[in-house]
Every structure is written in structure tokens, then in C-alpha cells.
């Protein structure tokens, strides 16, 4: 096994994260900082999807629901109960994880397309609940389509950058842990052949559930941070299926079930849409679509997954 190479990759990764931490001191404009922050945010969000779907092969089509729950928990905790930001943030992660636990028990029994449909339906259902709850019960809690305005902070962009970076770091580090652990082998075995995994002693239900809950916890954190950063949330925004699609595409582009897949995929896609978006305002989405199609055709297993070197260095 390539444990030595693994260590080198880990050290390089730690050094890289350390270097990224200095970005706020190096950028020339707030715009650049925002772009970097968005890249780091998406690396994390795509990583959450990869953690569950990339390793187990269970295509989750509703991860955005935990992002949305995170956003709403932080918004409601801060505006209605005046809880400070950091406790609310933590609460967001916990509630997202708890909901994932409850939802995971029945849905993770489903396989293939049925799981995708169930998760998708749940995300849409949550969007409808937040939209219609207040009108139905005549209360003011989720504030429906009016959305919630969070307390406006005095923090600068760099504050949010430093909120997001550690969470993203944890997400990517969790991937590294998954690659090297008993837990990771269980997930990969489930992906390759679930019934064979089961008769080899893998507790498939428990392992899938842990992956699902972990991914939801981190998504909740990201949702909460973004809500506080943007300061205004609506159901159709935070539960937008577009976010799910973006997670999936980024991970597919980078390589599903790989350590660096979401990092590469999310960075590539965010930067390319920023550059193209600035130059070709009207056509850039068409161009991105074309790029994605070409990329998937040339590298069906993603940028990282398609690297030949990966056959030698199994853990990237």
C-alpha cells in the first residue's frame, strides 16, 4: 500500500489549506475575496454530496434540503430567539443531522432510482412546507415566500471566509479519513456490491446512515453560514434544486468517490463560470453546458478519476 505517498498528499493538502488561509491578505479587491470564498464554499458543499453519494453510490437528489434546513434554523434562531451566531450555527448542523437521521432510516432502504426520487421529493416537500406553513396555520414562523431577513452583521467578507474555510477543511479531511478507514471500506463495498458487502459482515444500514447524517451535518453548517452572509433567505432560494444539480455536476466533473474530486470539480466549475460570466454575460451558461458535456465525454470518471496516475496512487 502507498501509505508514504498518502502522507505526502496529506501534508501537501494541509500546506495548501494553510496557504489558502492567507488569501484575505493577498487579494486586491473584495470581489476577488468573494470569488475565493464562493470557491471554498462550493468545494465544501460538493464534498458533502461526495461523502454520501460518491462513496456509497446512492445518488442523493435532495441534499439541498439540509442546506436549507441549516439556513432556516440559523435565521429563526437569530431573529426569533436572538441566539448569537455561533451557537445558532452549531444548532443548524445538529438539527440538519437529526432530520437526516429520521429521514435516512426509511429512505436508505430504497435502492437506485427510488432513493434519488425519495430524496428529491423530500427536498421539494420541505420547500413547500416552509412556503405554506405560516399561511396554513396562521402564524408567523417561516414567513413563507416573504423570506427572513437575518440581523445584518458588521463583519466583513473575510469573517465569512474564515467561517467557511475550517468547515470545508473538515469536509475534505473527512474524505481523507474515509479513504483510510474501516468505515470507508464499508461505504466502498456498499457501492460496488451491496448484497456481497452484507454477507461479508458489513452493517450496510448503519454505515449508510452515518455517511448520510455526516453529510447533512456539514451541509447544515454551510447553509447557516451562507444565510448569515447573504442575510436574506427565501424557501425557493435555499431549497433550490439548482444547488443539488450543482453539487452533483461538480462532483461528477472532479470524480465521484475520490478524495480530491469535489475540490477540483468545484474549483474548476466556479472559476470558469466566474470568468466566462464576466465576459459573456448572455451566453456563458451555454458555454458551461458545452464544457461539461465535453468533459464528461472525454473523462467519464471525472478529472481526478480519469487520471492514469490514480491507478498507482490509489488514494487521491
Amino acid at each position: 500500500m502507498n501509505y508514504r505517498i498518502d502522507r505526502i498528499i496529506l501534508i501537501l493538502f494541509l500546506m495548501f489549506t494553510g496557504a489558502v488561509a492567507f488569501v484575505p491578505y493577498l487579494v486586491q479587491s473584495e470581489y476577488q475575496l468573494r470569488v475565493v470564498t464562493v470557491v471554498v464554499l462550493w468545494v465544501g458543499i460538493a464534498g458533502c454530496w461526495n461523502m454520501m453519494s460518491g462513496y456509497t453510490g446512492y445518488i442523493d437528489f435532495g441534499p439541498v434540503v439540509y442546506f436549507g434546513i441549516g439556513s432556516y434554523v440559523v435565521a429563526i434562531a437569530m431573529t426569533k430567539y436572538s441566539v448569537p451566531f455561533f451557537p445558532s450555527l452549531f444548532l443548524s448542523g445538529c438539527i440538519s443531522a437529526f432530520v437526516a437521521f429520521l429521514v435516512g432510516i426509511p429512505t436508505l432502504r430504497l435502492r437506485g432510482a427510488y432513493f434519488a426520487i425519495a430524496t428529491f421529493a423530500f427536498a421539494e416537500a420541505m420547500k413547500q412546507i416552509t412556503l405554506e406553513f405560516d399561511r396554513t396555520f396562521n402564524v408567523s414562523f417561516f414567513q413563507g415566500s416573504d423570506g427572513i431577513t437575518l440581523p445584518i452583521s458588521n463583519y466583513e467578507n473575510s469573517f465569512f471566509f474564515y467561517c467557511i474555510l475550517p468547515v470545508t477543511f473538515l469536509v475534505v479531511f473527512t474524505h481523507y479519513f474515509i479513504e483510510h478507514s474501516k468505515f470507508g471500506y464499508a461505504l466502498k463495498a456498499i457501492k460496488e456490491a451491496e448484497s456481497a458487502a452484507e454477507i461479508s459482515g458489513v452493517n450496510t444500514t448503519a454505515n449508510k446512515l452515518v455517511a448520510y447524517v455526516m453529510s447533512a451535518f456539514f451541509l447544515g453548517l454551510f447553509g447557516a453560514i451562507e444565510a448569515y452572509w447573504i442575510t436574506y433567505i427565501t424557501p425557493s432560494d435555499v431549497f433550490n434544486v439548482q444547488k443539488t444539480v450543482q453539487m452533483v455536476i461538480m462532483t461528477l466533473l472532479g470524480g465521484m468517490g475520490t478524495f480530491l474530486g469535489p475540490v477540483v470539480g468545484a474549483t474548476f466549475l466556479t472559476l470558469i463560470s466566474e470568468t466566462l460570466g464576466a465576459q459573456f454575460v448572455e451566453y456563458y451558461l451555454i458555454m458551461i453546458g458545452a464544457i461539461i458535456i465535453v468533459a464528461i465525454l472525454i473523462m467519464p470518471s471525472g478529472i481526478i478519476g480519469g487520471l492514469k496516475i490514480r491507478k498507482k496512487l490509489r488514494f487521491i
Partner: peptide, 22 residues
């Protein structure tokens, strides 16, 4: 036969030892 095709032979057997053998 259902080997875990994306894994090496060693890793396949390892899954059995890790999980079946706890």
C-alpha cells in the same frame, strides 16, 4: 460472483476481515 470491482484483491479480502471479523 460479486467482487468489489473497484477495489484490489487485497482490499476485497480486507473488507471481510474488517467487518465480518470486526
Amino acid at each position: 460472483m460479486e467482487p468489489f470491482t473497484g477495489m484490489t484483491v487485497f482490499e476485497n479480502v480486507l473488507v471481510g476481515a474488517l467487518h465480518g471479523g470486526r
